[in-house]
Design a protein around this nucleic acid. Structure first.
Lengths: 213, 213
DNA sequence: GGAAGTATACGGAACGGACCGTATCCATGA
DNA sequence: TCATGGATACGGTCCGTTCCGTATACTTCC
């Protein structure tokens, strides 16, 4: 992340000609707020997160938080988007199946091994909502995963591993859908899930010869 | 001191041997509360739902609400579970594909055509949480859909439409996962989605001959 | 059978507590 | 000089509880 860009209120993030009047903002306070938010999210979840606790643990005044983020929701979503997003991971292995497993496993690992997982569960409502903050999450985290999968599928078709008539836009839904399903409904999120999802996606459930016109 | 409530839930309407001392609870008030909750959920969403508004619209005191439900969350989840759940819909059509499309379409229709679609989105965090209320939702709504799908898959195998080695327990994840995915991430929830999901699930993405060992 | 008694629920109102987001204070430092 | 720092107080909102006087059932007793 490393967002030196001052948030919300000040003019443009990358606006240069600021004379920088007055005392400059403390980067230490900024990081301390994010760190405290992350810790408290893990301990209490989003619904239980109290900005006064964040301020206390960060050794900061509440006003300092509101100078940088306009609301509790803004703060938390920026944190989560930053954690869950990137993972370029588009190294092609020459093996379509292995690449797909990795693409499914990536969000699974993010969910199960980073603070992102326990946190995102408490943020699902905000993410699913049509509000601006959820929009940003979709644009960063989700778009990255969709792009990765569509790249793999396109290469798989070129390579002759996948059917030329495969419904490419549906690949993300078919492969990541089960992950979201278990995120909500419960169930193991592990490598076994990733492998079974990819296998089911590739092999299909119908008896081979009969059903395709 | 800490135990004022006799029971969070009233004696069930068909409860037998209670002597029923005192004034019985008003069924009219009960229904009015549920009705008002439903209306206000649609207008304001879960986060914006105010119990005092519910009470006012229902023509009821707040205490009357808390006599029946222990919290706002309890009230709303009971409402949502009740509506989203049943739909027996296990009429076998003799057509595995059509049955699967119907099984996928059922939750889609519930989401898009009943008041609870917009509401479920605002309740995702509570449902995903490990708390009791979410548990009840999973036991009712989700379990019903899983049972329906597993029945269809089993019959499909018997009938010879589906591969005998199909990963049956994964069928629900593969088929309903995309619905949950779009519920969170966005995207159309319609018949076209159901048909494409089922088609992808049946046909598989891999080139037919090669990949099955 | 009818009157009195008992137990609970009713609608209404107020309250305590928690929390968000804002405002104000003085000190700090580029 | 002046915006930021940490600290604290405040207004406002809303949950969940508690109390009030009233309403409605069953039970007891005449």
């Amino acid at each position: 992340m490393a967002q030196p860009a001052p948030a919300a209120h000040p003019p443009s993030p990358t606006s240069h000609p600021l004379p920088a009047r007055g005392r400059p903002r403390s980067e230490r306070a900024h990081q301390a707020i994010l760190q405290a938010t992350q810790e408290l999210l893990l301990e209490s979840g989003y619904a239980g997160l109290r900005l006064e606790h964040v301020a206390a643990r960060a050794g900061v005044g509440k006003a300092t938080i509101y100078r940088r983020w306009s609301s509790r929701e803004e703060l938390v979503l920026e944190l989560v988007s930053g954690i869950g997003a990137p993972r370029p991971t588009i190294d092609d292995l020459g093996d379509t199946r292995a690449a797909l497993v990795r693409a499914v496993l990536d969000p699974i690992m993010t969910i199960t091994t980073t603070p992102f997982g326990p946190t995102i569960r408490t943020l699902l409502s905000e993410i699913a909502g049509s509000g601006g903050p959820g929009e940003r999450f979709r644009e960063t985290v989700v778009a990255a995963h969709r792009a990765a999968i569509e790249t793999i599928v396109a290469r798989g078709v070129e390579r002759g591993d996948l059917r030329p008539d495969v419904d490419a836009p549906m690949a993300t839904e078919m492969l990541l859908g089960p992950v979201f399903y278990r995120l909500i409904v419960g169930g193991a999120l592990d490598r076994d899930l990733a492998e079974r999802v990819v296998h089911a996606y590739l092999a299909g459930a119908a008896v081979p010869q009969t059903d395709w016109f």
